[in-house]
């Protein structure tokens, strides 16, 4: 079989499509990752602190998300909820919401494990030095949990980035959608999906490297040496 990669890289429209798709995938992943992390902190806190009612709601939510496929969650958010509540959002907004909810459940479990790694002595030292519970949590427990769990959170983030390809199913013009479009025009499936694979690998490695640097910079005393 003759390989005809040039059919992709000599066409500026295709290159632009791929670039736009990659930017959208990365943008949605980063935004959903950050908002998901914020939501995850609330969920993990509710469960870790055994907050009445909220702790149980958080547990139920996490189990619901972790026991259903991302694509079903995506369809539910993109088609089910708008029908029920009567609103209309752009495709990317539905994808962002679904990814945020999905990220939050996985991140919250990692954070909850991180909370339990903070030694009891740290709580007691803070209490005995005059700190109040909320501040102990915010200044002592949360930073340490995030620092310790940073590698796991990073791994989960990259894994979820790789699963974002499913948002193409609701019509979002992400990287996978761009590849599918180019394939449908050129019929050069091998070249198109190999190119897509290489772009995904490059982006994953970039995320991993950036997160590793962030870990070292943000938590210099807690990075394994």
């Amino acid at each position: 079989m003759e390989l005809r990669f040039f059919e992709i890289y000599r066409n500026p429209d295709y290159l632009w499509l791929l670039a736009e798709g990659a930017a959208l995938s990365a943008g949605l992943t980063v935004t959903a990752g950050l908002t998901g992390l914020c939501l995850a902190i609330l969920l993990a806190t509710a469960r870790f602190q055994n907050i009445p009612v909220l702790g149980h709601i958080a547990a139920g939510y996490v189990e619901f998300i972790r026991n259903t496929p991302l694509i079903v969650q995506l369809f539910f958010v993109a088609f089910g909820l708008p029908q029920l509540l009567g609103y209309s959002w752009p495709f990317w907004a539905h994808a962002l919401l679904a990814l945020t909810l999905n990220f939050s459940a996985y991140f919250s479990e990692i954070l909850r494990a991180g909370f339990s790694t903070v030694a009891q002595g740290q709580f007691e030292a803070a209490r005995a030095l005059g700190m109040r519970p909320f501040l102990i949590f915010r200044k002592i427990v949360l930073p340490q949990a995030i620092a310790r769990m940073f590698p796991s959170l990073s791994g989960q983030f990259v894994f979820l980035f790789l699963t974002t390809g499913v948002i193409a199913e609701i019509g979002v013009n992400d990287l996978t959608q761009a590849g599918k479009f180019i394939d449908s025009r050129t019929f050069r499936s091998f070249e198109v999906f190999l190119t897509l694979t290489m772009i995904y690998i490059a982006m994953s490695l970039t995320f991993k490297s950036a997160l590793a640097v962030a870990h070292t910079r943000l938590y210099p005393g807690m990075t394994a040496r």
């Binding site: 002595g121 007691e124 030292a125 002592i140 938590y219």
Partner: peptide, 15 residues
Amino acid sequence: IAMVFQSYALYPHLT
């Protein structure tokens, strides 16, 4: 009061 612990219990993420 202020307490000093056997395990030091220093906050590892702070200077």
